[in-house]
Design a protein around this nucleic acid. Sequence first.
DNA 1: AATGAATGAGGATTCATTCAT
DNA 2: GATGAATGAATCCTCATTCAT
Lengths: 191, 191, 191, 191
Amino acid sequence: MPKLGMEPIRREALVRATIAELGRAGTLDVTVSQIARRAGVSSALAHHYFGGKDQIFLAAMRRILADFSADVRRELEGASPSDRAAAIVRASFSSSSFTPEAVGAWMCFYGMAQKNAEALHLWQIYHRRLRSNLIHALRPFCSRPEDAADTLGALIDGLYIRAALDPALTPGEALGQALAVLRGLCAEGRS
Amino acid sequence: MPKLGMEPIRREALVRATIAELGRAGTLDVTVSQIARRAGVSSALAHHYFGGKDQIFLAAMRRILADFSADVRRELEGASPSDRAAAIVRASFSSSSFTPEAVGAWMCFYGMAQKNAEALHLWQIYHRRLRSNLIHALRPFCSRPEDAADTLGALIDGLYIRAALDPALTPGEALGQALAVLRGLCAEGRS
Amino acid sequence: MPKLGMEPIRREALVRATIAELGRAGTLDVTVSQIARRAGVSSALAHHYFGGKDQIFLAAMRRILADFSADVRRELEGASPSDRAAAIVRASFSSSSFTPEAVGAWMCFYGMAQKNAEALHLWQIYHRRLRSNLIHALRPFCSRPEDAADTLGALIDGLYIRAALDPALTPGEALGQALAVLRGLCAEGRS
Amino acid sequence: MPKLGMEPIRREALVRATIAELGRAGTLDVTVSQIARRAGVSSALAHHYFGGKDQIFLAAMRRILADFSADVRRELEGASPSDRAAAIVRASFSSSSFTPEAVGAWMCFYGMAQKNAEALHLWQIYHRRLRSNLIHALRPFCSRPEDAADTLGALIDGLYIRAALDPALTPGEALGQALAVLRGLCAEGRS
DNA sequence: AATGAATGAGGATTCATTCAT
DNA sequence: GATGAATGAATCCTCATTCAT
């Protein structure tokens, strides 16, 4: 029963289905048909709305990054200056962006970024924004905030991978480890 | 003119070609034909020796892990007790295991590990051995060597990804960051 | 806001759009969506009015043939008996039926005529009428007017193809060549 | 039962099958599968040997043009100077290049030439060579050999189309018409 | 030992067509 | 009168894999 105004609904459903399928597979080996089936539509419709497989994936990537940005902003809003860096770390391991699904999908982006120029560009935007946020937050407490930001960013990414592959690592533990390193970085800065 | 004793030579060539292709592509989207062409043999021969694509990839993964293990062992041999953790970190960023090629191939293993049970198993073996090495090396200097080892391991993985996607990050810098965190972890342990 | 009496307007717009698209593509590889877009309506409407793609094409073919017939009639009206054959030739290369667009569309009909029985029928009607007109016009001046008409008809078609593929051949030149052959045919008839 | 040296055999079979299918369909709406089926191989093999649909079609086009060139050369070899133009015309309607099959395939080339740059190039080569042959043959007998060659060329093409669409027109009749026009052109040249 | 030959299965993509509104 | 929504069927193409030689 076709209705009007389905486009945003379908796009949303397809983006969600893409993230879900990427998270399930952990690989880019996901077919448009699988995505469409999960979204409850035909694969032709997915092409109709997005134009192609790459753009479906890019839309999913944008959505994940946007969700993450929102998490960061939300955490930063209520944070005192001395808590800003920790807030960013908390956002990185927030429940919404740390579901097994999202972690798996995120892993796929590393693959996408090596094949698709626009995907790489999206990743770089995320990367720079996170780095810049971290530097800003760390500056008052570290002697070399750039290096500290790089370290913290790499650690966050590394913990993501562990979480994706090692079910034993819980988000809470990952967060704890990241915060501990953060404390170490600030301590080093002070020493 | 078929020759005798070609098997190990062909296997070696194919494994090397696989790693090279994975590094070049940065993705698992590598065909058996591409690998065989680079190795200078027919794709049928690749199947003949390995049985299938997955097993070609697994052989490449084993090779990378074995190379890495050798690097670690070599670095550990001449290290004083207080230098053991740093030796492991140095091995992780040694030139041989940190070529763009190897980094790209390594990235692919994360993808493999999510699809192929045996690949996951291999990764877990590497992971546990590295963790155990690190714990052992860190125990004298850290109050919680397990956590410190997890942190350091995650950081190493995260720096790998950065290196794969961000040409601005050199192995030397990555090593420096990892060693700095190592110092922080030990300092924290002492405090 | 649906309006009354839109049907003829829409049909006209769609037929024109079809001819334009065929002329642009030079091939039958024209989609209903392209036609509808150019006509400013939805592709569903095109089906609504015509019933299917083939019938849209047939309607366009009928229109081209009707336009051509009108051209012929107009030229014949003011022609003296000794000028009738030349008048038909002139009509064949009149500006209206010799636009690049029309030439391209006409070429497509050759393709259609081989797939669609009704298209073939339409082509045969055009063909017979042209032949009959030519025979009638040539009879007073040729010993074998049927053969002359066949020759002249084939030449006209051949010049169409040249014009479609070879931008160097202008309508004026084509007309000149056709008229020269016409003179030759009549001369031959007299000898 | 795969054997060695099949490539030229398969290529030949596929090219022949392509011409046959184009001739049967009279349209470019011929699928690779249809061609492959007629050639007795899988569609994958067709891609393997030719790389893609376009190149299969181009190979067929080259073959038709080469066959035609051979016909022309053969006819010209034994022709006296005063018979050269007629020899070319005879070649154009020789049995080999005038089978219903070849005629249908030839028609398709007009379609191809409008979509594929290389096809257009091939057609232009054929076109120029034929024109140059005709001019050379007509020069001693016509006052304006270029125009005569253009006319004759267009007539030949036009007769092709008639033959493709009108089963009533036999090759013999077509040849007769073309030769008659040729005589007319030469007569005109002499007058 | 090694390969050319060959294919089946599957995937992205396109498009005519239908239907409820 | 008109359209957005939706799809099934079909097509090109790729690729891992097998087999006879």
